[in-house]
Design a protein around this nucleic acid. Structure first.
Length: 425
RNA sequence: GGAGAGGUGGCCGAGUGGCCGAAGGCGCUCCCCUGCUAAGGGAGUAUGGGCUAAAACUCAUCGAGGGUUCGAAUCCCUCCCUCUCCGCCA
């Protein structure tokens, strides 16, 4: 959520900046709601103050044995007035709140102008693209001879966009997770957390998935209003919801491995082949909660942490600075890491590292106490994948394929896979 | 699933209709006293919001929501959570 004061005082500036995110702010609606809110709130609170004083004087009179009948008569119609005013205020505030919860975060100044991912700015490229003196296959064709990567069986068990892994591929999938966690914990100083995979509405609203993107989520079919997590970002960031951190306890740096569940509504026909886009996938997520002054630095650092995984695995990738049009709802700035996939002959997103500034923290009331002022201040939240496990496995299969159809195991991963150095399908 | 107890400020804990945003204690911050391994005295110490240049002022919040009442931490209803015992169980 944006700072309401900003929307009150600089509505037009906000509208201008949001246009780079392809979002048209309804300035007229917000201004008029805000105007009504002010009038009605002032009126309501004045009535409340009036009632409070009068009720107090009734109490006093009663305790002194005076006749309170005339006092009661004086407040008789106050209650009704107050109810009306309160109801009106409630309506306005609910509406205003709904509007504000739907307004995306402001992009940072450094965000490139652009409409789509084609306008993203390439920042750096790492690694040499593999050269094959044979026709490179994609991960589906590569594994076809075995049952190690099996979409049909998953379709039987559940439906489309699920996968079943067997044998060494299932091991590699788990090994990757373990490897990533170890690097982030031991080399990058993150604290591992284990969290619920089912979350409530408040948590999803805190990180920005609700109320606008409900159709992307799997919702449980009972009356409890619970959802499967689309990313560990939701439960992990919400650790800090409605809390004030001690200055000594921040920055908080969490790493968390979870499955992620996404309905992929609206992406029918996209990436239907292979395990690029699944309803269920594993991810190792990095989350940092830091004071405002440190978030830019934390964002750069976190991105580098994700890059280190790709480098250790020897996977060629590039880093792009997302343009306004491609930026997510809650993000102020995002670096995507795109790994090279020979099977598709292009770079594909494998990690998305974002700085949310105070946008999520305001929704969550996630704060810390600044010892210099003694006052609570909103934290800044930063997160990114470190990395998406399924896509990393796809990248290894495709980049490390050999002419005979086998796949070499990256050196860094071998000790996590009982020492084997290749997989034959 | 059955029976019971409970949710109050950073923590403990009092408060069963008004004088309660809330005693007391602990912790923390500042000041004073005291030459000594610790103690004593004093002051301060919740969060969000409105209005405002800022303050003054003011509203809300005692798990959440609703109700009764001129007035609710306190009474009533619903829900959530925690604890104890029993049952079941990865």
């Amino acid at each position: 959520m944006l700072d309401p004061k900003l929307l009150r005082n600089d509505l037009d500036v906000v509208a201008t900046r949001l246009r780079t995110k392809n979002y048209e702010l309804d300035v007229t609606l917000i201004a008029s709601l805000e105007e009504r809110r002010r009038t009605v709130q002032v009126k309501t609170e004045a009535l409340q103050a009036d009632r409070n004083t009068q009720s107090k004087s009734i109490g006093k009179a009663k305790s002194q044995g005076e006749d309170i009948a005339p006092l009661l008569a004086a407040v008789s119609d106050l209650g009704e007035q107050l109810d009306t005013a309160k109801a009106e205020l409630d309506t306005i505030q609910t509406e205003l709140n709904e509007v504000l919860l739907g307004v995306p975060n402001l992009p940072d100044d450094e965000v490139p102008v652009g409409q789509s991912e084609d306008d993203n700015e390439e920042i750096s490229v790492w690694g040499d693209l593999p050269e094959f003196n044979f026709a490179a296959k994609d991960h589906v064709d590569l594994t076809e001879a075995s049952q190690m990567l099996d979409f049909e069986t998953a379709a039987k068990i559940t439906g489309s966009r699920f996968v079943t892994l067997r044998g060494e591929l299932a091991t590699m999938h788990r090994a990757l997770t373990q490897f990533m966690l170890d690097v982030h914990i031991k080399e990058h100083g993150y604290e591992e957390v284990y969290v619920p995979y089912i979350v409530n509405r408040e948590s999803l609203q805190g990180t920005g998935q609700l109320p606008k993107f409900e159709e992307d989520l799997f919702k449980l079919a009972d009356e409890r209003d619970l959802y499967l997590i689309p990313t560990a970002e939701v439960p992990v960031t919400n650790i800090a919801r409605d809390a004030i951190q001690d200055a000594n306890d921040i920055p908080l740096k969490f790493v968390c491995h979870t499955p992620c569940f996404r309905s992929e509504a609206g992406s029918y026909g996209r990436d239907t082949r292979g395990m690029i886009r699944q309803h269920q996938f594993e991810k190792v997520e990095l989350v940092q909660l830091v004071p405002a002054s440190q978030s830019t630095e934390a964002h750069l650092g976190l991105t580098q942490h994700a890059e280190n995984i790709l480098q250790k695995l020897g996977l060629p990738y590039r880093k792009v600075n997302l343009c306004g049009g491609d930026l997510g709802f809650s993000a102020a700035r995002t670096y995507d890491l795109e790994v090279w996939l020979p099977g598709q002959n292009k770079y594909r997103e494998i990690s998305s590292c974002s700085n949310f500034r105070d946008f999520q923290a305001r929704r969550m009331q996630a704060r810390w106490r600044n010892p210099e002022t003694g006052k609570p201040e909103l934290l800044h939240t930063v997160n990114g994948s470190g990395l998406a496990v399924g896509r990393t496995m796809v990248a290894i299969l495709e980049n490390y394929q050999q002419e005979d159809g086998s796949v070499r195991i990256p050196q860094a991963l071998q000790s996590y896979m009982y020492g084997i150095s290749e997989i034959r399908f």
